[in-house]
Simulated scan of single mutants.
Amino acid sequence: MILDTTAGTCILGSNFDKLITMYRDSEHEDYPHCTVGKLWHHADWLLLNVDDEITRYYASIIKQRFSIDLHWKSKWGAHVSVIRGEALPNPEKWGRDEGREIKIYYTHQVYTNADHWWVNVISEELADIRTSYGLPPEKKFFHLTVGRTL
Protein backbone atom coordinates (compact mmCIF):
# COMPACT_ATOMS: atom_id res chain seq x y z
CA MET A 1 0.00 0.00 0.00
CA ILE A 2 1.29 3.47 -0.87
CA LEU A 3 -0.19 6.50 0.80
CA ASP A 4 0.74 9.99 -0.39
CA THR A 5 0.98 12.68 2.25
CA THR A 6 1.05 16.44 1.94
CA ALA A 7 4.83 16.69 2.57
CA GLY A 8 5.68 14.58 -0.48
CA THR A 9 6.25 11.50 1.65
CA CYS A 10 4.93 8.06 0.75
CA ILE A 11 4.33 5.43 3.39
CA LEU A 12 5.61 2.11 2.06
CA GLY A 13 5.39 -0.21 5.07
CA SER A 14 6.47 -0.74 8.65
CA ASN A 15 9.82 -1.41 10.26
CA PHE A 16 10.22 -1.99 14.01
CA ASP A 17 6.95 -0.11 14.47
CA LYS A 18 8.38 2.78 12.42
CA LEU A 19 7.36 3.79 8.93
CA ILE A 20 9.41 3.11 5.84
CA THR A 21 9.05 6.27 3.84
CA MET A 22 10.13 7.81 0.59
CA TYR A 23 11.36 11.39 0.83
CA ARG A 24 11.78 14.03 -1.82
CA ASP A 25 14.16 16.58 -0.30
CA SER A 26 17.18 18.33 -1.75
CA GLU A 27 19.65 17.03 0.86
CA HIS A 28 19.03 13.35 0.03
CA GLU A 29 17.60 13.53 -3.48
CA ASP A 30 19.90 10.76 -4.74
CA TYR A 31 18.77 8.62 -1.77
CA PRO A 32 14.99 9.05 -1.83
CA HIS A 33 14.05 6.19 0.51
CA CYS A 34 14.40 6.28 4.26
CA THR A 35 14.06 3.70 7.00
CA VAL A 36 15.03 3.24 10.63
CA GLY A 37 17.02 0.26 11.83
CA LYS A 38 18.43 -1.02 15.13
CA LEU A 39 22.10 -1.58 15.83
CA TRP A 40 23.26 -4.92 17.18
CA HIS A 41 26.58 -6.62 17.73
CA HIS A 42 27.54 -10.08 16.59
CA ALA A 43 31.06 -11.10 17.64
CA ASP A 44 33.26 -8.38 16.12
CA TRP A 45 30.63 -7.08 13.69
CA LEU A 46 28.28 -4.14 14.19
CA LEU A 47 25.14 -4.40 12.08
CA LEU A 48 22.13 -2.18 11.49
CA ASN A 49 19.13 -4.49 11.21
CA VAL A 50 16.39 -3.18 8.89
CA ASP A 51 13.06 -4.51 7.67
CA ASP A 52 13.37 -7.75 5.63
CA GLU A 53 10.62 -6.45 3.36
CA ILE A 54 13.11 -4.05 1.76
CA THR A 55 15.32 -6.88 0.47
CA ARG A 56 12.33 -9.07 -0.36
CA TYR A 57 10.87 -6.26 -2.46
CA TYR A 58 14.05 -5.69 -4.49
CA ALA A 59 14.62 -9.45 -4.93
CA SER A 60 11.09 -9.76 -6.34
CA ILE A 61 11.71 -6.88 -8.77
CA ILE A 62 14.95 -8.54 -9.96
CA LYS A 63 13.06 -11.83 -10.43
CA GLN A 64 10.29 -10.12 -12.43
CA ARG A 65 12.57 -7.94 -14.54
CA PHE A 66 15.54 -10.24 -15.19
CA SER A 67 14.26 -13.75 -14.28
CA ILE A 68 17.11 -14.05 -11.77
CA ASP A 69 16.47 -15.82 -8.48
CA LEU A 70 18.23 -14.39 -5.43
CA HIS A 71 18.86 -15.81 -2.00
CA TRP A 72 17.64 -12.69 -0.21
CA LYS A 73 17.14 -13.96 3.34
CA SER A 74 20.44 -13.46 5.18
CA LYS A 75 21.11 -15.43 8.37
CA TRP A 76 21.27 -12.02 10.11
CA GLY A 77 18.23 -10.63 8.33
CA ALA A 78 18.30 -7.51 6.18
CA HIS A 79 21.14 -5.37 7.47
CA VAL A 80 23.79 -2.78 6.79
CA SER A 81 27.28 -3.79 7.94
CA VAL A 82 28.76 -0.91 9.92
CA ILE A 83 31.88 -2.64 11.29
CA ARG A 84 33.00 -5.81 9.53
CA GLY A 85 35.36 -7.58 11.93
CA GLU A 86 37.89 -4.76 11.77
CA ALA A 87 40.44 -4.21 14.56
CA LEU A 88 39.19 -1.33 16.70
CA PRO A 89 41.60 1.40 17.86
CA ASN A 90 39.01 2.25 20.58
CA PRO A 91 37.69 -1.20 21.67
CA GLU A 92 36.62 -0.01 25.13
CA LYS A 93 33.49 1.52 23.57
CA TRP A 94 32.36 -1.77 21.98
CA GLY A 95 28.72 -2.57 22.65
CA ARG A 96 27.58 0.85 23.80
CA ASP A 97 25.36 1.34 20.73
CA GLU A 98 23.38 -1.90 21.12
CA GLY A 99 19.70 -1.30 20.27
CA ARG A 100 20.22 2.29 19.13
CA GLU A 101 17.88 3.31 16.33
CA ILE A 102 19.50 4.89 13.28
CA LYS A 103 17.88 6.50 10.23
CA ILE A 104 19.38 5.64 6.84
CA TYR A 105 18.64 6.80 3.32
CA TYR A 106 18.92 4.41 0.38
CA THR A 107 18.72 4.49 -3.40
CA HIS A 108 16.18 2.82 -5.63
CA GLN A 109 18.93 1.70 -8.03
CA VAL A 110 20.10 -1.88 -7.52
CA TYR A 111 23.76 -2.67 -8.24
CA THR A 112 25.41 -6.03 -8.92
CA ASN A 113 28.74 -7.71 -9.52
CA ALA A 114 26.84 -10.76 -10.89
CA ASP A 115 27.17 -12.58 -7.53
CA HIS A 116 25.79 -10.01 -5.09
CA TRP A 117 23.03 -7.43 -5.50
CA TRP A 118 22.75 -4.30 -3.32
CA VAL A 119 21.38 -0.79 -2.92
CA ASN A 120 23.59 2.07 -1.77
CA VAL A 121 22.97 3.57 1.66
CA ILE A 122 24.01 6.90 3.13
CA SER A 123 24.13 7.70 6.85
CA GLU A 124 26.13 10.34 8.65
CA GLU A 125 25.22 8.67 11.95
CA LEU A 126 26.77 5.35 10.88
CA ALA A 127 29.89 7.18 9.66
CA ASP A 128 30.10 8.94 13.06
CA ILE A 129 29.83 5.60 14.88
CA ARG A 130 32.73 4.19 12.85
CA THR A 131 34.78 7.28 13.67
CA SER A 132 33.99 6.95 17.39
CA TYR A 133 35.66 3.52 17.34
CA GLY A 134 38.70 5.01 15.60
CA LEU A 135 37.84 3.60 12.16
CA PRO A 136 37.66 5.48 8.85
CA PRO A 137 34.13 6.86 8.34
CA GLU A 138 33.53 5.20 4.92
CA LYS A 139 32.66 8.70 3.67
CA LYS A 140 29.16 8.03 5.10
CA PHE A 141 28.38 5.58 2.25
CA PHE A 142 27.33 2.01 3.00
CA HIS A 143 25.25 -0.67 1.27
CA LEU A 144 22.30 -2.94 1.96
CA THR A 145 22.74 -6.35 0.36
CA VAL A 146 19.58 -7.40 -1.49
CA GLY A 147 20.78 -10.96 -2.07
CA ARG A 148 23.11 -13.41 -3.75
CA THR A 149 22.50 -14.97 -7.15
CA LEU A 150 21.41 -18.61 -6.85
Rank of each mutant, 00 (worst) to 15 (best):
Y57G: 09
L135V: 01
S81V: 15
T145E: 04
Y111F: 15
L135N: 01
Y111C: 08
S14Q: 10
I129M: 07
D30Y: 04
F16P: 00
G99Y: 08
K38A: 08
S60N: 13
N15T: 14
H42W: 06
D44I: 06
V121Y: 02
Y31C: 01
L126Q: 03
Y133A: 05
R84Q: 12
S26W: 06
S60T: 08
N90P: 06
N113S: 07
N49Y: 06
D4R: 10
W117F: 15
N120I: 08
G147W: 03
W45H: 07
T9P: 07
L19F: 11
V121M: 00
A43W: 03
H28C: 05
E86G: 01
S14P: 02
Y111T: 03
F66K: 11
A127R: 03
S74D: 15
T21P: 01
H108N: 14
F66C: 08
D51H: 03
G147C: 06
G8P: 08
L144M: 08
S60V: 03
I102K: 04
A59N: 05
W76C: 11
L150W: 09
Y58N: 08
R65Y: 03
D52I: 07
S67K: 13
V121I: 12
A114T: 10
Q64S: 12
K38D: 00
H42T: 09
F16Y: 14
A78E: 05
R130G: 01
E53V: 09
T107S: 07
S132L: 03
G99H: 13
R96H: 11
P91R: 03
F16N: 09
V121F: 00
W72V: 02
K73R: 13
L135M: 04
R148I: 04
I68G: 03
D51Q: 05
F16L: 12
K73C: 10
K75N: 11
D44Q: 09
T107M: 14
Y23E: 15
T131K: 14
A43P: 00
L39G: 01
D17F: 10
R96I: 12
M22H: 11
D128F: 04
L150E: 13
G99W: 13
K139D: 10
I102T: 05
Y105P: 02
I11F: 12
L150H: 06
R84W: 08
L48E: 06
F66Y: 14
I122N: 02
D69P: 05
A127K: 00
S14E: 13
A59F: 02
I11K: 08
S123T: 10
